[in-house]
Simulated scan of single mutants.
Amino acid sequence: MNLETARKQLRGGLLLLAALQTVVSVWQYVFPRSFYDDFPTVRLDPPYNEHLVSDVGGLGLALTAMLFYAAKVMDDRVVRSALIGYLIYAATHFTFHVRHFDHFSVRDALSVGTGLGLEVALAILLLYICGRISRAGVTSPGQPATTSA
């Protein structure tokens, strides 16, 4: 894979994660009751708590900002920190849900598990691409490789 392609894939992946996180976080923060009532499978969780849902939405918006900023600047440290933060969030969210499928239909469990698992896998893949770019001698994923004289 050439470096320009890797940078485009990394930026595209960051934007995808940021877009997905934006939709859910805005919904949680701006319309917490609607999120609780209307998001598939959330009704299977414990009773509604507006404070908790809107706080999670606000934290998701902070993560969204980090991902969009990382996609804009494409600085190695910024990209890695945004992806590591996102991976920690996605992995803990995935782990919670796969341990609490008691009241879920098979279809809902597969949908939630697959969707959340794909977020974890995408974050890991993007960290891998970022590492490949760094190992190729590029100081920042958004910058061209430098050659030694």
Rank of each mutant, 00 (worst) to 15 (best):
Leu3Trp: 04
Tyr89Phe: 15
Pro46Arg: 15
Val53Gln: 01
Pro47Val: 11
Leu122Thr: 05
Ala123Lys: 02
Ala19Gly: 10
Gly131Met: 06
Ser140Phe: 14
Pro141Asn: 01
Leu118Lys: 03
Pro40Met: 07
Gly131Tyr: 07
Leu126Met: 07
Arg43Phe: 11
Asp102Ala: 08
Leu17Cys: 09
Val112Thr: 10
Ala19Lys: 00
Lys72Ile: 10
Ala123Cys: 05
Ala90Ser: 12
Arg135Thr: 06
Val53Tyr: 05
Ser148Lys: 15
Glu119Ser: 15
Gly131Cys: 03
Val112Lys: 09
Tyr48Leu: 00
Val106Asn: 10
Thr146Asn: 12
Phe104Asn: 07
Asn2Phe: 04
Arg80Phe: 01
Ser140Pro: 12
Thr64Met: 01
Gly131Asn: 11
Asp76Met: 10
Ala70Glu: 04
Arg33Thr: 03
Arg135Cys: 05
Leu17Lys: 02
Val42Arg: 08
Leu20Phe: 09
Leu15Pro: 08
Ser34Thr: 08
Ile129Lys: 01
Leu15Asn: 09
Gly117Ser: 08
Val56Gly: 09
Thr41Phe: 14
Gly57Met: 04
Asp108Trp: 09
Lys8Gln: 15
Leu44Ser: 12
Gly113Trp: 02
Val23Tyr: 08
Leu122Cys: 03
Asp75Gln: 11
Gln21Ile: 07
Asp37Met: 13
Ser148Thr: 12
Asp38His: 14
Ile129Phe: 01
His51Thr: 15
Phe101His: 11
His93Trp: 12
His51Asp: 13
Thr64Lys: 01
Leu118Ile: 03
Tyr69Gln: 10
Val26Leu: 15
Leu67Glu: 09
Gln28Trp: 12
Pro47Ser: 10
Leu17Arg: 09
Leu61Trp: 00
Thr92Glu: 06
Leu16Phe: 14
Thr41Pro: 01
Gln28Val: 01
Met74Pro: 01
Ala19Met: 05
Asp55Gly: 04
Phe104Gln: 11
Leu61Glu: 06
Tyr86Met: 13
Gly60Cys: 01
Thr146Met: 14
Arg135Gln: 11
Ala65Asp: 06
Leu83Gly: 00
Gln28Phe: 11
His97Pro: 12
Ala70Gly: 00
Leu10Ser: 08
Ser105Glu: 08
Thr146Cys: 13
Gly117Gln: 07
Arg132Ile: 06
Pro47Tyr: 03
Ala18Glu: 02
Leu110Val: 11
His51Phe: 13
Ala6Leu: 15
Val24Tyr: 14
Ala82Lys: 05
Val106Arg: 15
Tyr48Ser: 02
Cys130His: 10
Leu59Cys: 06
Val106Asp: 11
Leu127Asp: 11
Ala90Asn: 07
His103Cys: 06
Val120Glu: 02
Val120Tyr: 06
Thr64Ser: 04
Lys72Glu: 03
Leu52Gly: 06
Arg99Lys: 09
Gly142Phe: 05
Arg80Asp: 07
Arg7Trp: 02
Gln9Phe: 01
Phe104Thr: 09
Thr41Gly: 02
Phe96Asp: 07
Val106Lys: 15
Asp75Lys: 10
Arg77Asp: 10
Asp108Leu: 12
Asp108Pro: 05
Asn2Gln: 07
Val23Trp: 05
Phe35Leu: 04
Gly142Met: 00
Tyr69Ser: 13
Asn2Ala: 10
Ala82His: 06
Gly115Glu: 00
Val120Met: 05
Glu4Lys: 15
Met66Trp: 09
Gln9Ser: 13
Thr92Cys: 11
Tyr69Ile: 09
Ser25Gly: 07
Ile129Ser: 04
Leu61Gln: 02
Cys130Lys: 12
Gly137Ser: 03
Ile133Trp: 06
Ala149Leu: 14
His97Gln: 08
His51Lys: 13
